[in-house]
Amino acid sequence: MPGGRLTQEDRRLIATWLKDGLGYAEIGRRLGRPTSTISREVARNSGRSGYRAEEATRVTGERARRGKPRPRAVPVVENGYGRDPEAVRAFETEFAEMIVATGLPRMTARLLACLSVSDDGVLTAAELAQRLQVSPASVSNAVAYLEAQAMLRRERDGRRERYVIDEEMPQRVWDESVRSNQEWVRIARRGAEVLGTSTPAGARMDDLSRFHARINEIMLDDRVAVFAGDALTVLAALLHAGRALSVPALAGALEWAPDRVAAALLVVEEHPHIAGPVRVDCRGGEYRAVPLVERLTVGQLAALGS
């Protein structure tokens, strides 16, 4: 039957036609099969005496009786939090599909989802390969892609590398997106200069540069909203401490990276309205939260004993 498995009669004809000196292409044409099917069949079932039709039929029958090997089950990772492992795995798949829809390669999306749903956010290459049932090379390629996009970072653990998604990841991705948009603006403006804005191609480049410049403005404005929560947390920490603290001291107390603390303090400095009736003074590398007494009248200050 053309398109199906070779039958015993097909194999008998192949053996006969080979003895008659016919080539694979002609045999395939007569049987209605691709030439590659005939060449594979002959290569797989030939011995010193040439193609063996009866042996080929016997081996194929045994292979069919054994059936296909069962696929290995994807390991279910115990989480220790009483969650339903199957529900977690289903969510991981759903999460990966959403990431694929945004444009990431499927393997990259699966790896990102796998790391994201792990409680530590840290896995080795071997652990990722086992959980995803893929080769180490596939893991390596996906990691390289995510690292280039600032979506994960590497850690050295003795002789092993660990791949980490931490709380700083959204900020790194955001910063990388801003940088990428700035590159679009730069190259599009350069294109407009080279092509001339009075030409259709130059005008297109000019529009492109303006579009990405506007996107950058929006992203930079939105960054204030993103880090406003961090800014208020730092203010609360300074008010609670009641004394001046350095960035490293704040980072240690809040269990944050120093860059995150510095970014929050910068938002307070550049957008004082976020802090309300409080401002942050910096002296000698230490920060102190102080009230904005300027909001009070002389009479109010006197009544309050100031």
Rank of each mutant, 00 (worst) to 15 (best):
V134D: 02
L31T: 00
S135P: 03
V77G: 07
S46I: 05
S49V: 12
Y145G: 00
T93Q: 14
Y81N: 12
R83I: 13
E55Y: 13
T124P: 02
F91K: 05
D84F: 01
E62D: 13
A56R: 07
E92V: 07
A64Q: 13
S118E: 01
Q133L: 13
E54V: 12
E86P: 09
E26A: 04
R29Y: 01
A101V: 10
A64T: 12
T37H: 03
G121R: 00
V74M: 10
T93E: 15
R44C: 13
P34F: 08
G28F: 04
E94W: 13
P69D: 12
F95T: 01
R65A: 09
P34G: 00
S49D: 11
R48Q: 15
R33G: 03
R33W: 00
V74D: 04
N141T: 15
V88M: 02
Q133N: 14
L104E: 00
V134E: 05
R48N: 14
E97P: 02
N79V: 14
L123N: 06
T60W: 12
T108C: 10
R65F: 09
E54A: 15
A113V: 02
T37M: 03
A64C: 09
R89I: 07
L31M: 08
S116C: 10
V134L: 07
P136N: 08
S36A: 06
L111A: 00
L111W: 05
E78L: 15
A64D: 10
I27L: 07
R44A: 15
P105Q: 04
A144H: 09
T124A: 07
P136G: 05
S46G: 11
R63D: 05
G67D: 10
V59I: 15
V143T: 00
S135W: 05
N45W: 11
E97Q: 08
R33K: 02
R66H: 03
A125H: 06
S138L: 01
R83T: 14
A137L: 12
V42H: 06
V88A: 06
R63S: 10
S135C: 01
L112V: 07
A113F: 08
D84K: 09
A125S: 10
A129M: 04
A96W: 06
G82H: 02
V77T: 11
R58I: 15
L104N: 04
Q133A: 14
A113T: 05
S138C: 08
G61K: 12
R58D: 14
S116V: 02
D120S: 09
Q133R: 15
L115V: 06
T102H: 06
F95N: 00
R65G: 01
T93G: 13
A73G: 09
A129D: 07
Q130Y: 03
A144P: 05
P34I: 10
A126T: 10
N79L: 15
A64H: 12
S49E: 14
Y145E: 02
I38C: 09
Q130C: 11
S135V: 02
L31F: 04
V117P: 09
P71Y: 05
A96Q: 04
F91D: 08
N79P: 12
R65C: 03
V77A: 06
R44Y: 13
R44N: 14
